[in-house]
Amino acid sequence: MPDRWKVTVDPRVCVRTGLCAASAPREFQLDERGQGRATAEPLPASEEILEVAESCPIEAISIVDADTGEGVFPPQS
């Protein structure tokens, strides 16, 4: 697992469920419109962040290795 991730919440896709911020409040927060966003860039890689991205009901969260730019989530086919 990489050490640092760039985590992005696509504002065009996010439907403001707040699940990310409720599940990992140190890594995600809601902006003034109620959309999720990462609290820092980059974030330390963790299973918690990956689980939050996987549980986003519309897959609005993407994760890439901050050093290489290689995709972590969603899985590349």
Rank of each mutant, 00 (worst) to 15 (best):
1 M>S: 13
2 P>H: 06
2 P>K: 06
3 D>P: 01
3 D>W: 01
4 R>N: 13
5 W>Q: 03
5 W>H: 02
6 K>Y: 06
6 K>S: 13
6 K>L: 13
7 V>H: 09
8 T>V: 11
8 T>H: 12
9 V>P: 10
10 D>P: 03
10 D>H: 08
10 D>V: 02
11 P>F: 00
12 R>E: 15
13 V>P: 03
13 V>D: 13
14 C>N: 07
14 C>P: 01
14 C>V: 09
14 C>G: 05
15 V>A: 08
16 R>M: 15
17 T>P: 00
17 T>R: 06
17 T>N: 05
18 G>R: 04
18 G>F: 02
18 G>N: 08
18 G>M: 05
19 L>S: 10
21 A>S: 09
21 A>P: 00
21 A>I: 00
23 S>L: 03
23 S>K: 04
23 S>I: 01
23 S>F: 00
24 A>C: 11
24 A>V: 04
24 A>F: 05
25 P>T: 01
25 P>D: 01
26 R>L: 13
26 R>W: 03
27 E>K: 01
27 E>P: 00
28 F>H: 01
28 F>L: 10
28 F>M: 03
29 Q>W: 06
29 Q>Y: 04
30 L>P: 05
31 D>M: 09
33 R>M: 08
34 G>Y: 09
35 Q>H: 07
36 G>Q: 03
36 G>R: 03
37 R>L: 11
37 R>M: 11
39 T>H: 02
39 T>S: 07
39 T>N: 04
40 A>R: 09
41 E>V: 00
41 E>D: 15
41 E>P: 01
41 E>F: 00
42 P>S: 09
42 P>W: 05
43 L>Y: 00
43 L>T: 06
44 P>H: 12
45 A>E: 12
45 A>M: 04
46 S>A: 14
46 S>E: 08
47 E>R: 14
47 E>C: 01
47 E>Y: 00
48 E>S: 10
48 E>M: 11
48 E>G: 04
48 E>Q: 15
48 E>N: 12
48 E>W: 00
50 L>H: 09
50 L>I: 14
50 L>W: 09
50 L>Y: 08
51 E>H: 14
52 V>I: 11
52 V>L: 09
52 V>R: 06
53 A>S: 09
54 E>L: 13
55 S>P: 00
55 S>Q: 15
55 S>G: 13
55 S>L: 14
56 C>A: 08
56 C>K: 04
57 P>H: 10
57 P>V: 13
57 P>A: 12
59 E>A: 14
59 E>V: 12
60 A>P: 02
60 A>F: 08
60 A>T: 12
62 S>V: 06
62 S>C: 07
62 S>K: 04
64 V>K: 10
64 V>A: 06
65 D>V: 02
65 D>R: 07
66 A>F: 06
68 T>S: 15
68 T>H: 10
69 G>I: 02
72 V>S: 05
72 V>P: 06
74 P>F: 09
74 P>Y: 05
74 P>V: 10
74 P>K: 10
75 P>Q: 11
75 P>R: 13
76 Q>V: 14
76 Q>P: 07
77 S>R: 05
77 S>A: 14
77 S>D: 15
